[in-house]
């Protein structure tokens, strides 16, 4: 096996990893800040793709879809937080889990009723179609573009959470909401925004994925599993963890594809099982109770 192929495979793995990071971001933010395990994550990813499809059909532009659809679905996320999840704060973690689980089914059925059960075509814009020669092999331009978008999003998130007053409040709110209330911070408004942000990022993932995978009501099912694997490996709620874990899983899947491609899905879950055994809190997660 020549070096060129191995290098190309490594690169494909990183590219796939970037997509996995994007897919997991929304889940990990909502869990890290709000402690809510969002089982509707996959469905919201799919809703994002359909919203993108709709906006693209109305405006004729992929770029509008990329901006408007995540914002619109983010607002939907805020409505979900305000009217469905907020009444459940203070109860056991199972309640929001069950609620989002059911909500996932409702969203999938709603899309089936509105758009039908068949897949719908969604193409990348002409400017991003085609392949480039990387020196070690050809790679689709669109996937490079996705890697770029993910890098930009991560940078923005990092700045927003680590370098701004808003980020400071969010992080403090995640640690101890009661103290924040005492200090006069409107915690419920904060959580509304964080949930909306998480859902908006999930929807952005859906729009970005749409030209690579086909748009169908079931496209979120696998995404939910992938996002959980990445989140668990990285550590629930850790942004850095999600990035490292996403890239790690991508490379692991890609390298497996060289030798036993039918094992690609198993490798992902195997890696997760291994991490859970050795380091239950995940690579960058805080140990329970700390």
């Amino acid at each position: 096996m020549d070096l060129e192929l191995i290098l190309m495979q490594l690169f494909s793995g990183l590219a796939l990893g970037a997509i996995l990071v994007m897919v997991a971001l929304g889940l990990t933010i909502v869990f890290g800040m709000l402690g809510i395990v969002n089982f509707a994550h996959g469905a919201l990813f799919m809703v994002g793709a359909y919203a993108g499809l709709w906006v693209a059909a109305q405006t004729g532009s992929f770029w509008w879809a990329l901006i408007v659809a995540p914002l619109a679905v983010g607002v939907l996320g805020m409505l979900i937080e305000r009217f469905l999840i907020r009444p459940l704060y203070g109860r056991t973690p199972d309640d929001p889990l069950l609620l989002t689980f059911g909500l996932g089914y409702v969203l999938v059925e709603a899309v089936r009723i509105t758009f039908g059960t068949d897949g719908i075509p969604f193409s990348a814009p002409d400017a991003l179609q085609g392949v480039v020669d990387l020196g070690v092999g050809y790679f689709p331009i669109y996937r490079l573009f996705v890697m770029g978008v993910v890098a930009v999003i991560l940078l923005l998130l990092w700045v927003a959470l680590e370098k701004t007053r808003f980020g400071l409040i969010v992080r403090a709110g995640a640690r101890d909401p009661l103290i924040m209330k005492v200090l006069g911070v409107d915690v419920s408004r904060l959580w509304l925004l964080v949930f909306g942000l998480g859902v908006g990022l999930t929807a952005l993932g859906g729009v970005l994925a749409a030209p690579m995978r086909n748009v169908s009501p079931e496209m979120g099912t696998l995404v939910l599993a992938e996002a959980f694997v990445v989140t668990v490996i990285g550590g629930m709620g850790s942004l850095l963890g999600a990035v490292v874990a996403g890239l790690l899983v991508g490379v692991a899947v890609s390298m497996t594809a060289l030798f036993a491609p039918e094992m690609a899905t198993i490798v992902m879950f195997g890696l997760m099982a291994l991490i859970l055994l050795v380091r239950p809190q995940g690579l960058f997660g805080r140990p329970a109770g700390a």
């Binding site: 192929l5 495979q9 494909s12 796939l16 996937r143 690579m212 995404v223 491609p261 899905t265």
Partner: peptide, 15 residues
């Protein structure tokens, strides 16, 4: 061979 229901085939293409 690829897993049934796979969503991403990119890692198979170089090979």
């Amino acid at each position: 061979l690829h897993p049934f229901g796979a969503a991403d085939y990119s890692t198979l293409m170089p090979r």
